[in-house]
Amino acid sequence: MSAPPELDPVIHAQARLRVVAALNTMGAGNEMAFPALKDLLGMTAGNLSVHLSKLEEAGYVEITKTHKGRTPVTYVALTQRGRAAFDDYTKAIRALLDNAGGTS
């Protein structure tokens, strides 16, 4: 019997999981602007900022501040590390499901 896999605490929170899942869907080489991400997730700007800071601290997302004309724009991208963490997380969740299915 394998021990239940550890779940990454940074991702194992509903809001941050959704942020990472959304960014992961875009594929490497793509960034999403903060307002677009906020609308997609249906979160408030304040709430999303808090979660993005946590993900940035963990090195899972990269936040780029730039300008489009005169308007400042913030882009968010999943880092390679974030992508790997999401991959490991989904594997761990699937393993948990399999274990639960095997013992019941």
Binding site: Q14, A15, R18, A22, H51, R94
Partner: peptide, 28 residues
């Protein structure tokens, strides 16, 4: 907000990931 709500079960989690993936695909 800081905690981001704990996730109940693995089934729920996979469903959540799939829903978010589908929503993102349809947005794109």
């Amino acid at each position: 907000a800081d905690d981001g709500d704990r996730i109940p079960s693995p089934e729920e989690t996979l469903r959540l990931i799939e829903e978010q993936r589908a929503a993102t695909v349809s947005r794109l």
